[in-house]
Computed example of a mutant assay.
Amino acid sequence: MTRIDAKFADLKAAGQKAFVAYVMAGDPDFDTSVQIVKGLPAAGVDIIELGLPFTDPMADGTTVQLAGQRALERGMTLDQTLQIVRELRKDDTTTPVVMMGYYNPIYSRGVDRFLQEAKEAGIDGLIIVDLPPEEDDELCIPAQNAGLNFIRLATPTTDDKRLPKVMQNTSGFVYYVSITGITGSAEAQADDVAPDVARIKAVTDLPVIVGFGVKTPASAQSIASVADGVVVGSAIVAQIEAGKPVDEVLQFVKSLADGAHKAGE
């Protein structure tokens, strides 16, 4: 059982919904990024999604793209991204961390070496948006064999024929992309999301977490009410981009987490 599996078991036993927060590793700089990541659990974050900066992030909207650029311009690397997780693990051995990004930096490092280093650093799962199920032998299967969850994205365009294939080797949870398009675009609506969450749950026992287009505590509560939890990324990254102090960023995160957690009350 991974930390992700244990977290969802605990949440289910408590009748709670999950709040997942995404931040870009190294944004706005390494030291500030460490402070933010280390502060997320106390702000109510159940699972941390840590973005791995990449030069060609095709699924990311402008806000997250710019965060990646800022991080790369500050010299952020895969090694430093892993170091942020190591810094977190000095004080926190329970909060799950999912690395989200693209395959190229992992391929360049070498899959076996990357998985060993990720596991040792304290990463629990991977979301690699440009590896479809047809490429499971590349990273998905090796990651699961190494004890990491491989979390798959499902979207509004994932039809009933495609869905079982997408779920085939998924573990940890399913990340449902609530809108068609890139991150940080339109606002997600619970009435639109609920039927697709039910459709996914019909083919998997995994928790379904909804992301993309969730920007406020009210929308976090609304979306979490029709799923097992909610992910917020761009809205948090925008606070960092605006130069808000770490404590203000974490206060904003807490407001979102409180919203999501109200959905389970």
Results as ranks from 00 to 15, higher is better:
T2W: 04
I4F: 12
D5P: 01
D5K: 09
D5N: 11
D5M: 07
A6I: 02
A9H: 02
D10G: 02
L11F: 05
Q16M: 15
A18K: 05
V20H: 09
M24K: 01
D27G: 10
P28V: 02
D29T: 08
D31S: 12
Q35H: 04
G39P: 08
L40S: 03
L40T: 00
P41H: 00
P41A: 04
D46E: 04
I47Y: 07
L50I: 09
G51I: 14
T55I: 01
A59F: 05
G61V: 05
T62K: 15
T63M: 09
A67I: 04
G68T: 03
R70Q: 05
G75W: 03
M76P: 00
T77A: 09
D79V: 08
Q83L: 09
V85M: 10
M100E: 09
M100D: 04
Y103T: 13
Y103R: 06
Y107I: 12
S108Y: 10
G110E: 06
G110K: 00
R113E: 05
R113K: 08
L115Y: 02
L115R: 02
L115F: 00
A118K: 04
D124E: 00
G125S: 06
L126S: 05
P133Q: 09
P133H: 01
E135C: 15
D136L: 05
D137F: 12
D137Y: 11
D137I: 13
I141R: 15
P142R: 11
Q144L: 07
N145K: 15
L148H: 08
L148K: 13
L148M: 13
N149R: 09
F150P: 11
I151K: 11
T155N: 05
T157G: 02
T157S: 14
T158L: 08
T158P: 04
D160A: 11
R162M: 07
S171H: 09
G172S: 14
Y176K: 01
G184D: 15
A188I: 14
Q189E: 15
V193L: 06
A198Q: 05
R199N: 00
I200M: 04
A202Q: 09
T204G: 03
D205G: 13
P207A: 10
V208E: 08
F212V: 15
G213I: 13
K215P: 00
T216W: 15
T216N: 07
A218V: 12
A220L: 14
S222N: 12
I223F: 11
V230C: 03
A235N: 10
A235M: 12
A235I: 15
V237I: 11
V237F: 15
P245K: 02
E248Q: 13
L250E: 08
L250A: 05
Q251C: 00
F252S: 04
V253T: 05
K254V: 01
S255Q: 14
D258C: 07
H261R: 08
